[in-house]
Design a protein around this nucleic acid. Structure first.
Length: 327
DNA sequence: CGTGTTTGACCGGCGC
DNA sequence: GCGCCGGTCAAACACG
């Protein structure tokens, strides 16, 4: 990862350090500094003392610059570790899914029909009812065996939404406009299943099914099929992506006072801490990933607490130097 | 009156 | 071929 685009300057009004690429600049700057300090302390200290003081200052600046570089390296390493961790998680998920597929074939060989998607979800251990996970999704890449005779390219994802057990409305707010076209009581679940089509664009092929979980009536399971061929009705994705949206605005428990019709709400499924899921970061373009790191660096440099803490640490070092008799 | 929901009927896939 | 089941259709209905 290239650290050039990460601005790690902390805005502490420290005299900027010029890297070695400009050989003349540090010497010139140091000469200017020495001249300035000579003027300031004119008549109060000897020229030797002033030179010694400016030398100490220069050393301190170099040390701070080194620390800055180390921080940059740490940030870069952190990003690299994060990327490696993402790939590792993905590998583990893939391996687990493959083993689950084998178990699926073994345990359901005599079943009349294919196991329901919820059975699959439970087998692979994703978002079982009662966990703290607000939402999660399973794409067709993770579940390629579903609907083998239908369009294999059909993107299928699931979203789990907490609701009240007494709330019989099968409504999942996800920002899109849906038109209900059917409702059925399925065999394996006493709760009816509602069928929706995306009505935002006439040609949009996306459908969704909403049904309460058989195990946990407080959990709504929304199954999405297909991909929208239009923009999100509310393109507030960026706001959500950088995590400045409250958890209540995510797919969240539906209040009884909710409007009858589904209303737009941003749909990126973050966790309860507003962190993007690794899948979403992983799926984001490199430019956006760089943007995220820039946001991290920027938030650090703009954080007055962080800046003041670092300034205090640096001033502490200066004090140590002065106590050691260098001042 | 336009739009969305409800609900019974219908269709097609699958297993026996 | 038959029955079961999930998914879809469409007329009737509700609501603003």
């Amino acid at each position: 990862m290239d650290s050039e685009w990460v601005n790690t300057s902390l805005g502490l009004n420290v005299i900027p350090f010029h890297p070695a690429s400009d050989d003349q600049a540090p010497v010139k700057k140091q000469q200017e500094l020495e001249g300035d300090y000579a003027k300031v302390f004119e008549g109060h200290a000897s020229v030797k003392q002033e030179a010694a003081a400016s030398h100490v200052l220069t050393e301190e600046l170099n040390r701070i610059s080194l620390e800055n570089k180390k921080l940059t390296e740490m940030l870069t390493a952190l990003c690299e570790n994060y990327t490696n961790l993402q790939s590792h998680v993905k590998e583990l998920m893939t391996a687990k899914q493959q083993s689950s597929d084998q178990n699926d074939l073994a345990t359901n060989f005599n079943k009349k029909r294919k196991p329901d998607s919820e059975d699959y979800r439970n087998m692979i251990g994703l978002t079982s009812p009662g966990t703290n996970t607000e939402t999660s999704s399973i794409s067709d890449e993770e579940y390629p065996c579903k609907r083998p005779k239908e369009n294999m390219n059909l993107k299928i994802s699931k979203v789990y939404v907490r609701t009240e057990a007494s709330d019989t409305r099968l409504i999942v707010k996800d920002g899109y406009q849906w038109r209900k076209y059917g409702q059925k009581v399925t065999r394996d679940n006493p709760s009816p299943r509602a069928y929706y089509k995306c009505s935002f664009a006439p040609s949009c092929p996306v459908k969704k099914k909403v049904q309460k979980s058989a195990e946990n009536p407080c959990l709504l399971v929304a199954t999405y099929e297909g991909e929208h061929n239009h923009m999100h009705p509310e393109t507030r994705a960026e706001v959500t992506l950088i995590g400045s949206i409250s958890p209540n605005q995510q797919l969240s428990p539906l209040s009884p006072s909710m409007a009858k019709r589904t209303s737009p709400v941003p749909t990126f499924s973050c966790d309860k801490n507003n962190n993007l899921s690794p899948r979403e970061i992983e799926g984001a373009p490199p430019a956006f990933q760089q943007f995220l790191v820039q946001q991290m660096a920027s938030s650090l440099t703009k954080d007055p607490n962080f800046a003041s803490a670092l300034a205090a640490a640096i001033s502490g070092r200066f004090s140590d130097h002065s106590r050691m008799g260098n001042w």
